[in-house]
Design a protein around this nucleic acid. Structure first.
Length: 558
RNA sequence: GGGCCCGUAGCCUAGUCUGGAUAGGGCGACUGCCUUCUAAGCAGUAGGUCGAGGGUUCAAAUCCCUCCGGGCCCA
């Protein structure tokens, strides 16, 4: 915010370009050193003098840039101190004016971003491992949308493939119509598990499963009917969970949708001379990547082929500026091959496609495979809700809207848990950790916002405010953090990393707790009270807006 | 065999892209704090060879090289 003026002032003084100076500015970890600092080492070396001497001389000779109230030299550093009262005034005005839109911008106006996420295989129920792509994709979608981009949220369902053959085969042998009606998802899962267990011992069963899929591909009526039924049941279930979790999706498109386009797609690549026959299969060859199969020797296609068709189709209908694939890191090579194939086919927009990888979710060292143990997302959510309910009964039994608050807090905790570390890292599912509501968690942030709300329920900020009264360390820290909100959202967008936002919100919540534990808001001095009310109004708005970008609600009481 | 990602206290984790002042948090442990805006909180104590070694630099958790450990992909 104030870096620009500082940079300009320094650049002029030192005879350097704006860009050269800009790269040097940094923020000290310890705020007692100042808010923005300029290390003098490099410039001092060029001028063949000592860094601390340069710092001291600069302190004396430069005029105060806009928004800066003091400059100090501290050894080799030149430290700038922000004028917090004018900064606070700007923020208070903006939060009151923009409210839930504070932090939002129009930087992405006119650009379409397609975000493919969640993309579950609907042959299986919604497991805890599906959460990753779902919540990362959802929050990235919110983040892009907040910056003015037109976001198309695409859920690319796995609704095709041998697993459906297996499922049909299993249903024919052990299925129960009544049970399917009553308890569809669990019944289908038990069939799925049983099939894999049996197939391990019995090769013939595997073959049968494949045969059912061949029937499906061939358009067999009975197979198609079963496929539609299973997909419908599972999809209904998935939609229910998305609704619960506040996940917004614009387009639900299955792999099956692209089936009719595959022949054309293969022809297209063949005509370009990009396909090679190898052992009966059709492959794409690359100079710097392993070859990729487009069509197997039995004539069936694999997901690369469908992805090629899907990418082209989406480009045609959305004219996107960018397309993100939020998918786990094991698929890195697949996406490299996909993007490269689009590129060598001559699609310039191939460079606008990006894989947003995330680490694998593991369970006690084992990957969370459906076949062995399976953790239903919903079971985790229900456990979280019941734990929150018992905490409410203990701490705040008279709370209104108990069930709604319990859901918001519980779901917040689960979502936040998944988003809170850099997405590239693997995560180990540990129920105790997921159900921890203390410290760096969503409930902590929600609690902070609820505490602020309850103060604001007793008194609202008046029109006039003297923000120079906010001069404690605690107050200044909050003001400084609030000023950064917009750039944090932008960083999260640039890197496609929602955890930058969780880190920020948790730090801000902590600052708020430090503040209201030390300084009462509802004091008798009218002006101080007004200033503090403005401060917490703004802080609460940022907490609410930030959580909302993550897909998490902020209850007013809890 | 080729390639990608990760390694920071007992556990989880930020900081690594863009090098900068005593490496931030959280969980767990321990000591205090509910007659004052919600104790899902606050104040404090203990806990670190930033995987190892080398290099670049005035300055390295951060950049480069080698190795070790873990995960993954391709063959």
């Amino acid at each position: 915010m104030f870096e620009k003026d500082i940079t300009r002032t320094l650049a002029k003084k030192l005879g350097k370009t704006y860009k050269e100076v800009e790269g040097f500015l940094e923020q000290p970890q310890d705020s007692s050193f100042g808010d923005i600092s300029f290390p003098c080492f490099v410039v001092a070396k060029e001028q063949k003098r000592s860094p601390s001497e340069l710092a001291a001389q600069l302190k004396k000779s430069i005029a105060l840039p806009k928004g800066i109230e003091n400059i100090e030299s501290s050894g080799p550093y030149l430290n700038f101190f922000i004028d917090y009262s004018s900064l606070a005034e700007t923020i208070f005005q903006e939060t009151r004016r923009k409210k839930s839109k504070f932090g939002h911008t129009n930087k992405g106006k006119g650009e379409v971003v397609v975000i493919e996420f969640s993309s579950p295989n609907i042959g299986k129920p919604f497991g805890i491992a599906h959460l990753r792509s779902t919540v990362i994709g959802n929050s990235l979608s919110n983040i892009y949308a907040s910056q003015g981009y037109k976001v198309e949220r695409v859920n690319y369902l796995g609704d095709w493939g041998t697993q459906f053959g297996n499922l049909m085969c299993a249903f024919q042998m052990w299925g129960d119509e009544k049970e399917l009606k009553k308890n569809s998802i669990r019944h289908l899962l038990s069939l799925y598990i049983k099939f894999h267990a049996e197939a391990e011992k019995d090769e013939a069963l595997k073959k049968k499963g494949k045969e059912w899929f061949v029937r499906l591909e061939g358009g067999d009526k009975k197979a198609k009917g079963m496929w539609k039924k299973f997909c419908g049941l599972n999809l209904k279930e998935f939609k229910r969970i998305y609704h619960l979790l506040n996940i917004k999706i614009d387009h639900t498109i299955g792999e099956a949708f692209y089936e009719p386009m595959l022949k054309k797609t293969i022809e297209f690549y063949r005509n370009k001379g990009l396909l090679k026959e190898s052992d009966g299969a059709l492959i794409l060859e690359y100079p710097d990547l392993p070859p990729a199969i487009v069509q197997k020797k039995d004539g069936t296609t694999i997901y690369l082929t469908r992805d090629l068709a899907a990418a082209k189709h989406r480009r045609d209908i959305f004219k996107f500026k960018k397309m993100l694939y939020v998918a786990d890191a094991r698929q890195t090579l697949h996406f490299q091959q996909l993007f490269k194939a689009l590129e060598i086919a001559g699609f310039k927009w191939a460079r606008q496609c990006e894989h947003v990888p995330f680490g694998v979710m593991k369970f006690k060292g084992e990957p969370l495979a459906t076949r062995k143990g399976f953790i239903f997302l919903e079971d985790v959510l229900l456990k979280a809700v019941s734990k929150v309910e018992s905490i409410i009964d203990e701490k705040n039994p008279s709370l209104g809207h108990k069930e709604e608050v319990a859901r918001q807090v519980a779901f917040g905790a689960v979502i936040y848990w998944d988003l809170n570390s850099d997405r590239v890292r693997d995560v180990v599912f540990d129920l105790d950790q997921v159900l921890n509501f203390e410290g760096d968690t969503a409930p902590y942030i929600q609690y902070t916002s609820a505490r602020l709300s309850s103060i604001l329920a007793k008194a609202s900020p008046p029109r006039r405010v003297d923000s120079f009264l906010l001069n404690s360390q605690e107050e200044k820290k909050i003001i400084g953090s609030l000023a950064k909100f917009e750039s944090v959202i932008w960083d999260a967008k640039m890197h496609n990393k929602p955890h930058l936002l969780t880190n920020y919100l948790s730090a801000l919540a902590q600052e708020c707790n430090n503040f209201y534990n030390k300084h009462p808001v509802l004091v008798n001095e009218k002006d101080l009270r007004a200033a503090r009310l403005h401060l917490i109004f703004a802080a609460r708005q940022v907490l609410i807006n930030g959580l909302s970008l993550l897909g998490i609600h902020s209850p007013f009481q809890m």
